[in-house]
Amino acid sequence: MKKFGLIGFPLSHSFSKKHFTEKFAQEQIADCEYDLYPIENISSFPELIADEEICGINVTIPHKVGVMTYINQLDEAAAEIGAVNCIDIRRENGKAVLKGYNTDAYGFETSLFPFLKEHHTKALIFGDGGAAKAIKYVLHKLGISFLVVTRKPAEGTILYEAVNEEMLREYTVLINTTPLGMSPNVDSCPQIPYEFITEKHLSYDLVYNPELTKFLERSAASGAAIKNGLEMLYLQAERSWYIWNS
């Protein structure tokens, strides 16, 4: 039996378990299972991977950084972003050899790229938490300059109050990395002047539940192209499967 799974805490619900369980059934992939491993303290991780049937692990909050202590190799994206969300486990002479990847970057870039137009050269990133790390990496890779917008003053960021008509004329890619608008708080959204958004804007929300967040709804009402984070999630999952089987 090949075992795969997700570590994090808490793990009350999981897109990954549903996705892979359905994938194994639909594609008739035998002798594979995907489980949830709610680990409160990352120090429990070596005990988990001592199970020689475990071949691959996805990682979610709060362990994307802490798990790096146990990784033998990092891919370029994971090293530069400073976070791991996919681990490939190979056994050599009875010892587990772990390589860490960041599939957030792959999922975001692949889902964003088809929407980009020539005038999309500058972006505003709303929020500066863990989710923003991969976004910055991808924008840098694509040659899109960006500003990070936060609620509280922090080095290298601007406040929401600074986002005005003039700035929105220049920054036409808008990316929400905060949980604002996520169910059940569906009426919340980044506090920006939506009346200055135009058809030249692209608004991308990492939130996917609901599929149409208030941020996307208000952006679309002003003419912007919109995209939520659901495809990014599917792409991340499929990238993990590719990594584990390549």
Rank of each mutant, 00 (worst) to 15 (best):
L6E: 05
F15A: 09
F15D: 07
H19C: 13
E22P: 00
K23C: 14
Q26Y: 05
Y37K: 01
Y37V: 03
P38C: 11
F45L: 11
P46I: 11
I49S: 04
I49D: 02
D51E: 15
E52A: 13
E53W: 01
G56N: 00
H63Y: 05
V65Q: 13
V67K: 03
T69P: 05
Y70T: 04
I71H: 01
A77R: 01
A79P: 03
G82E: 03
N85Y: 01
D88H: 09
D88P: 01
R90W: 02
R90P: 00
E92N: 10
K95F: 12
K99Q: 12
G107D: 07
S111F: 08
P114R: 12
F115S: 13
F115I: 02
A123H: 01
G127I: 06
G127W: 03
G129M: 02
G129D: 05
K133I: 10
G143V: 06
I144L: 07
S145I: 08
V148Q: 15
E155T: 11
A162F: 06
E165K: 06
E165P: 00
E166T: 14
L168T: 00
E170F: 15
E170T: 15
Y171K: 10
T172H: 02
V173E: 02
T177H: 01
T178N: 11
P179S: 11
V186P: 00
E195Y: 03
E195F: 04
E199H: 12
L202Y: 01
S203L: 14
Y204S: 08
L206P: 00
Y208I: 10
Y208V: 09
E211L: 14
L212Y: 14
T213F: 12
F215Q: 02
A224R: 00
N228I: 04
G229L: 06
E231W: 02
Y234N: 12
L235K: 13
N245T: 06
